[in-house]
């Protein structure tokens, strides 16, 4: 299972990557593997606000619906719209092409509270 060192992680298996002042958000390799084939994704619109720990969308596999939880609060400045037509990208490339939204964080310090790769790996191993 892939857990890039440079990212931050939530207990709900989202990742967050700093890009300048912004934060790119997606779900982890562990999450996509456990979901199985992703067949539908529902994301917010540009301009919406998301709140740390609250749902910002859903991702659905053939069998199940899972909510997506925001790692940080802020305003959505970009959405990966092509995922609407090709949700399987989330399975194929969860950390790059499978990114979901970009947020302009209202409180960048919220990132510090997330797990780093080492802590997330330990968290995942505990779950298995």
């Amino acid at each position: 299972m892939e857990i890039p060192d440079t990212l931050k992680y939530t207990r709900e298996h989202e990742w967050a990557r700093t890009k300048g002042t912004q934060v790119v958000i997606g779900i982890t390799d562990f999450a996509q593997d456990h979901l199985g084939d992703v067949v539908f994704v529902e994301l917010p619109d540009v301009g919406d606000t998301v709140k740390k720990g609250e749902s910002f969308g859903v991702v659905e596999s053939t069998k199940a619906v899972s909510e997506l939880f925001a790692p940080v609060s802020g305003k959505v400045v970009e959405v990966n719209d092509p995922l609407g037509d090709t949700p399987e990208t989330i399975n194929d490339d969860p950390y790059e092409e499978g990114w979901m939204i970009v947020v302009e964080p209202s409180d960048p310090k919220e990132l510090d509270a997330l797990m780093d790769a080492k802590a997330y790996r330990a968290f995942v191993e505990e779950q298995e």
């Binding site: 199985g36 084939d37 067949v39 596999s61 053939t62 069998k63």
Partner: peptide, 9 residues
């Protein structure tokens, strides 16, 4: 077993 290779496959 719920899946082997993936449900779609």
């Amino acid at each position: 077993p719920v899946q082997y290779a993936g449900i779609l496959e």
